[in-house]
């Protein structure tokens, strides 16, 4: 939607294939046409972000427009991914929306402490979920301004 280094990519970090499929469906049903890259665990997410491992050779400077991050992930959990992102100059200002099942107070507090931009609890009611995704897309993909790297 915008020119520059930031592409239109959305990075979805989600280990549960059901949730992945439902999220993709929700995005699609909300007519969000951005390319969605799915990472199934923390390591994959970090590989993508820093162009390592499977994503070696990718242009590191092209960072996703928003990262939808689940917290409970195999290998490296979501909070760790968030921490690493915020520690690197390259990914420091990439918007991160924590999208998780947990409504634990501690998870919410930790997420914001580590620099999450938003925290959304995945509702069980898919209609509500769709509504949430619609608002996310509206906000993070259309309204939110990020500094130009």
């Amino acid at each position: 939607m915008r020119d520059g280094c930031r592409g239109k990519t959305i990075l979805l970090v989600e280990d549960n294939p059901d949730d992945e499929a439902l999220t993709l469906r929700a995005l699609r049903r909300n007519r969000i046409a951005n390319e969605v890259v799915v990472a199934h665990d923390g390591v994959e997410a970090l590989d993508y972000l820093f162009a390592t491992g499977r994503y070696e050779g990718r242009d590191r400077h092209e960072q996703p427009q928003v990262v939808l991050l689940d917290l409970k992930l195999p290998k490296v959990d979501g909070l760790e991914v968030l921490k690493r992102m915020r520690a690197e100059e390259l990914t420091r200002r990439v918007p991160v929306v924590v999208l998780t099942s947990s409504s634990e107070e501690r998870d919410i507090v930790d997420s914001y402490d580590f620099g999450a931009n938003s925290y959304v609890r995945k509702p069980v009611d898919f209609e509500q979920f769709m509504e949430a995704v619609r608002q996310l897309g509206m906000y993070w993909l259309l309204l939110n301004e990020v500094p130009q790297a």
Binding site: D19, L22, L71, K72, S101, K122, V124, F126, F129
Partner: peptide, 10 residues
Amino acid sequence: SHDLRAPLRA
């Protein structure tokens, strides 16, 4: 909270 809800959501 995390794991029981995921299947319900599915």
